[in-house]
Structures are given as structure tokens and as C-alpha cells.
Simulated scan of single mutants.
Amino acid sequence: MFLPDVLDQTVKKLKTQIANCLTLTNIFLGGFSIIFSLKGHIQLSLLLIFIAALADRLDGMAARKFNIESELGKQLDSMSDIISFGAAPALLIYQGILFELGAPGSFFTVLYICCGAFRLARFNISENNGYFTGLPITAAGCIITFFSLGINFIPPHIYLFLMLIMSVLMIGNFRWRKI
């Protein structure tokens, strides 16, 4: 009986590490997205954010499939989300166009990151019961990243409005069912 117990524990640890490795991949991609944004490689930064979204989706699927959801995994996921879908998209838009607007561009960039952090903190301390409260930061980050494709065509002031709308939607009290 000893060997099967050890094997079961080993398999469970490996499954846990799969989800955590996917979460760390998300952070890794978000971090490099920030670096590439700061170096002016906007297209590469954009691509890394979208790949981070895929890693974020896969880590949640792995955790649910293997029934290995944990407090550590939940906190690690939130830390990766604030980097990959908070700071990375905000800096992508800032470096791409909002810097042209001076202080208002800086303000709305930081506001978006703060609202994303607030949304994640609220999510971590609440009972979810199959519902999201406010727009998930992953969705907000992907929307902002998608709109970065139009930097050459959309006026800068529209991006201020977009950052404000995404910020308000993330901290809003509306609820909607998880998919």
C-alpha cells in the first residue's frame, strides 16, 4: 500500500506543477511584453500578451481538470494577471500612443493598472459562485491589446476614453456568469 500512496502523491504534485508552470509562463510572457514595449517593439509586445492569454486559459483548465485548485495557485494567477493583462497592455498603449498626451496619458495608464489590481484583489477575497463581478482583467487587457492594432489610425484621445472605460468596467459591480 505504501508504493501506490507515494505514486498518487507524486502524480498530484506533477499535476500541480503543470498548472503552476503555465501560470509562470503567463508571467514570463507578460514581463517580456513589458520589456519589448519599452524598447519600441510594439508588435512583438502585442503578440506576447495574446500568447499570455492562452497560457492563462490553459492554467485554469489544467487546475480544474486535475482538481488541483489551491490558494497558492489563485494568488500566483492574480500576480501573473496584473503583469500580463494590467501592466503589459497599459504600457503597450502608453508607449504606442498615450505618451503623446503627456500627463493625461500617464494618468489613465496608471489608473487602468490600479483598477486591474483592485479587481483582482476583490476577486481573490470574494465567493465567486459561478459569477464574475466586473470585467475580468484578462478580457480588459486583451481588448486594449487588440485596440493597439489601430494606433496608426485611431486618434490618441480615443485611447484615453478606452482606458477609462476598461478601468470602470473592471471595478464595476455588475455580475455575469462564468463561461
Rank of each mutant, 00 (worst) to 15 (best):
L76Y: 10
I151S: 06
N124Y: 06
P104A: 14
L14H: 08
A19V: 06
R119L: 02
F32S: 04
I143N: 04
Y112L: 04
Q17I: 10
L160H: 04
G105A: 08
L101K: 03
I97A: 03
G40V: 04
P89Y: 01
F85P: 00
T145N: 02
A62N: 10
F32E: 03
D81N: 09
S126K: 07
R122H: 11
D5I: 12
F161M: 14
G116W: 00
L91C: 03
K178E: 12
K65M: 13
Y159K: 04
V6E: 13
L169F: 15
L120W: 02
I42E: 02
I158W: 08
I125Q: 09
I151D: 03
A53M: 12
L22S: 02
F108T: 01
S148Y: 01
S106P: 04
A140W: 01
L46Y: 07
I68R: 03
T25E: 07
I34G: 00
V11I: 15
A63E: 04
H157W: 11
I143S: 05
N26M: 08
C115K: 03
T138C: 06
G86S: 09
S106F: 09
K12R: 15
A19C: 11
Y131P: 07
D77K: 10
K13V: 14
L120V: 06
L47Q: 13
I83D: 00
E127D: 14
N20R: 11
G102Y: 09
I27H: 05
F146A: 15
T16W: 09
A121H: 07
L47K: 09
K15W: 11
L76A: 08
H157T: 09
I158V: 15
N152S: 15
S45W: 00
I68C: 07
S37T: 02
S78D: 07
T10K: 13
E69A: 14
P155G: 12
I125E: 10
W176H: 15
T145F: 01
P89L: 02
D59P: 05
A139W: 08
I151N: 05
F85Q: 03
S78Y: 12
A103W: 13
M61F: 13
R119K: 13
N67Q: 15
Q75V: 10
L149Q: 15
I171P: 01
A88N: 02
I154F: 08
L72W: 10
W176G: 04
L91N: 02
R64N: 10
T109S: 04
M163P: 03
M61T: 09
L29V: 13
G105S: 06
F123E: 07
F146H: 03
K39F: 10
N124K: 05
L46I: 04
G30E: 01
A121M: 14
